[in-house]
Amino acid sequence: MIGGHLATLAGSAWARTALRYGVTALAILLFLLALRRSGERAGRLAERLEAMEEANAGQRRMLDAAARRPRDCDELAERLRDGQF
Score class of each variant (00 low, 15 high):
1 M>K: 08
1 M>D: 05
1 M>T: 06
2 I>D: 06
3 G>A: 06
3 G>L: 03
3 G>P: 02
3 G>Q: 05
4 G>M: 06
6 L>W: 09
7 A>T: 09
7 A>G: 04
9 L>I: 06
11 G>S: 14
12 S>P: 01
12 S>Y: 05
14 W>T: 14
14 W>E: 14
15 A>Q: 12
16 R>Y: 03
16 R>K: 15
17 T>Q: 15
18 A>F: 08
18 A>Q: 09
18 A>I: 06
18 A>S: 11
19 L>S: 15
19 L>Y: 13
19 L>T: 12
19 L>M: 10
21 Y>C: 10
21 Y>M: 08
21 Y>V: 08
24 T>K: 15
24 T>A: 14
24 T>M: 14
25 A>F: 10
25 A>G: 11
25 A>M: 11
25 A>T: 10
25 A>P: 04
26 L>P: 02
27 A>I: 09
27 A>F: 11
27 A>W: 08
27 A>H: 10
30 L>P: 03
31 F>T: 14
31 F>A: 15
32 L>H: 06
33 L>P: 00
34 A>C: 08
38 S>I: 06
38 S>A: 11
39 G>P: 02
39 G>M: 00
42 A>N: 07
42 A>T: 03
43 G>W: 01
44 R>D: 00
44 R>Q: 10
44 R>L: 02
44 R>T: 01
47 E>P: 00
47 E>D: 14
51 A>R: 12
53 E>D: 09
53 E>N: 10
54 E>S: 07
54 E>H: 09
55 A>W: 03
55 A>C: 01
56 N>R: 13
57 A>M: 03
57 A>G: 06
58 G>M: 05
58 G>N: 10
59 Q>V: 04
59 Q>K: 10
60 R>L: 10
61 R>I: 05
61 R>Q: 15
61 R>F: 04
61 R>M: 14
61 R>V: 06
61 R>H: 11
62 M>W: 09
62 M>Q: 15
62 M>S: 15
63 L>W: 04
65 A>R: 07
65 A>P: 01
66 A>M: 10
67 A>D: 06
68 R>C: 03
72 D>F: 04
72 D>G: 00
73 C>K: 07
73 C>T: 02
74 D>E: 15
74 D>P: 01
74 D>N: 10
76 L>H: 05
77 A>N: 13
77 A>E: 14
78 E>P: 02
78 E>C: 06
78 E>H: 14
80 L>T: 06
80 L>G: 03
81 R>Y: 01
81 R>T: 02
82 D>W: 02
82 D>Y: 01
83 G>F: 00
83 G>Y: 00
84 Q>A: 13
